[in-house]
């Protein structure tokens, strides 16, 4: 490990439990690089997660860490941030965690535009429980609970949070690891709710069932199907067929919730209504 990043990890908690070929470690290294670039104060930073493979991240990183219940990471994080807005709050979630059981909290964190940076590791599957379909499993793909192929339509999570009011929305991939770091940095700098979807791979529980034999093949798939949002502007719909966009997808200005609440306190304490 590069010594500059060692301090962000709890060395005594490594090695991690993730399977060989899992993308979570690459996302976590992008996170550590982002922390270094931000020169973040570890004592003043809280990292929250839900339940699932991605949510194990909080065990390994050396911050104030909060490993919560399934789907509820953002609700816990909202309490942390509102109670003490001076804390930097990051949230790790998986695709099932954030968009199925935790979908409501994702919508409302977006709506409030609370200053939290959420990193959603999207590996298209429930990995911890052995490969059940999630709302981000593409239609037609196989899972243990979709043995004949996923019947349901899948979410575009970035569109969802954009619609709900998030003020920074980005998508990266494990293959584009450097860009992922940049997106986390940009998300953290946004004073509001930021979502970074990190497209990752689960060779064990997803790849093997969907004709992608190993991690390399899956990462190559990311390379071949991801199109930078700027490059996409020069491409026609035919060229963009089967592709997905990466990069900073959306940015907006909106009042940040905890700052607005502090203004409310000031107003009330001055005797206002």
């Amino acid at each position: 490990m590069n010594s500059a990043y060692e301090k962000y990890f709890r060395q005594d908690r490594l090695p991690h439990i993730w399977c060989p070929g899992c993308g979570n470690g690459i996302v976590l290294s992008a996170f550590a690089r982002a922390m270094e670039e931000l020169n973040i104060d570890q004592d003043k930073t809280v990292v929250v997660s839900g339940i699932g493979c991605s949510s194990r991240a909080t065990t390994y990183v050396d911050f104030n860490t909060l490993h919560t219940t399934h789907g509820r990471a953002l609700a816990f994080a909202t309490g942390v941030k509102l109670a003490n807005p001076e804390l930097n709050v990051f949230v790790f979630m998986g695709d099932g965690d954030s968009s199925a059981i935790g979908g409501n909290h994702l919508i409302h964190a977006s709506r409030r535009n609370i200053d939290i940076t959420a990193i959603i590791i999207d590996n298209n599957i429930y990995g911890m429980t052995g490969g059940q379909y999630s709302p981000l499993t593409p239609t037609g793909k196989k899972a243990t609970t979709a043995p004949y192929g996923m019947v349901e339509r899948n979410f575009d999570l970035c569109e969802l949070v954009k619609g709900a009011g998030a003020t920074f929305v980005a998508r990266g991939t494990v293959y584009h690891a450097k860009q992922l770091t940049d997106l986390i940095v940009a998300g953290a700098k946004n004073k509001g709710f930021s979502v970074i979807e990190a497209v990752s791979q689960c060779p064990i529980s997803y790849g093997r069932r969907n004709k992608m034999k190993n991690a390399l093949e899956m990462i190559n798939w990311q390379k071949e199907h991801a199109v930078n949002v700027k490059a996409a502007q020069k491409m026609n719909p035919e060229q963009l067929k089967d592709k997905f966009l990466i990069g900073e997808l959306y940015r907006a200005e909106a009042p940040e919730y905890t700052a607005e609440y502090d203004k409310l306190i000031e107003r009330v304490q001055k005797g206002g209504k």
Binding site: T68, A75, F76, N84
Partner: peptide
């Protein structure tokens, strides 16, 4: 569910 979660998060800040 979220309100229970939020109070726990807030309590952890003291």
């Amino acid at each position: 569910i979220a309100s229970m979660a939020a109070v726990i998060g807030a309590s952890l800040t003291g």
